[in-house]
């Protein structure tokens, strides 16, 4: 028997939290995306030649969406579980008749939903600046959803792991942001020297951005199949990690 009520209240609670911090959750990504468009799209982009037949301003759209999606999924989900841990109110979730699966569905589901909404808003914002044609809408949505879920899960893991606010920021700042920037958000990997192209292949974010970009322009650094496989693998790793954390009561149960 599944405790649907519990999933519902956790989900609702987390969604409500975004509503209270509407400016932070929605406005700030929209503003930063617009800034990227002004700087990279209009100012610098006008002097960059087309990449594989796509104008630079348009070319960076998928990368920009991914940049926001990744950072927001992680920060949202990690904060959602870290804050109750920080205030101690997590005791209630721990003592409620609710399984780890339900807790994860509630928290991660909400964080992923918020990212999904955010991704849509950014795409709409981008549409104001450039003409977007999405070649494979279904694949795009699939990438969007998978990315939101797996990085929300990853954020949830960080939130469980973090014992203070500094640790909460550590991985997004030191690992995720560099990976996203170096994963081809703003350029095609083909523009790099050959040696660096090989190095980039070890960056998991590359596969995400490449696959996502393919769904727009049918232009990709690696094949879509590989991209999909990679994101599924990442999702699986996160799931196993979360399962293990709850199984052992890691950082939750003494």
């Amino acid at each position: 028997m599944i405790n649907y009520q519990a999933i519902r209240v956790i989900y609702k609670y987390e969604m409500l939290r975004a509503w209270h911090t509407l400016l932070q959750t929605i406005a700030s990504p929209v503003i930063s995306t617009s800034l990227y468009f002004v700087v990279f799209g209009a100012a610098i982009g006008s002097r960059i030649e087309e990449i594989e037949g796509v104008s630079y301003a348009v070319f960076i759209v998928p990368g920009l969406v991914m940049l926001s999606l990744l950072t927001q999924s992680i920060s949202n989900a990690s904060f959602g579980i870290f804050f109750p841990k920080f205030t101690g109110s997590i005791y209630e979730v721990m003592s409620a008749p609710i399984s780890f699966f339900e807790i994860v569905v509630g928290y991660v589901g909400a964080a992923a939903s918020k990212s999904l909404i955010l991704g849509t808003i950014i795409l709409l914002t981008a549409n104001l600046f450039v003409d977007l044609n999405i070649a494979h809408p279904f694949v795009m949505v699939l990438f969007l959803v998978l990315t939101c879920i797996s990085f929300a899960l990853f954020g949830f893991i960080i939130g469980l792991w973090a014992t203070n606010f500094e640790k909460l920021q550590l991985i997004p700042m030191l690992v995720i942001t560099p990976l996203v920037f170096l994963g081809g958000s703003f350029y095609s990997v083909n523009m790099l020297p050959p040696a660096w192209q090989t190095v980039t292949l070890f960056n998991p974010v590359l596969y995400l951005i490449s696959g996502f970009r393919w769904s727009f322009f049918e232009v990709a650094d690696v094949s879509v199949g590989v991209s999909l496989a990679m994101i599924c693998l990442f999702l699986l790793v996160c799931l196993v990690l979360v399962w293990w954390m709850f199984k052992t009561g890691y950082r939750l149960k003494q």
């Binding site: 405790n3 009520q5 409500l16 109750p84 205030t87 109110s89 609710i98």
Partner: peptide, 25 residues
Amino acid sequence: PQELTLGAFDTVWNTVNFSRGLFGK
């Protein structure tokens, strides 16, 4: 619990409803 372990930004009404829901009621 012994410590005053509560969230900060929720209202009283929301937090008691949240608790009830967590217990599947």
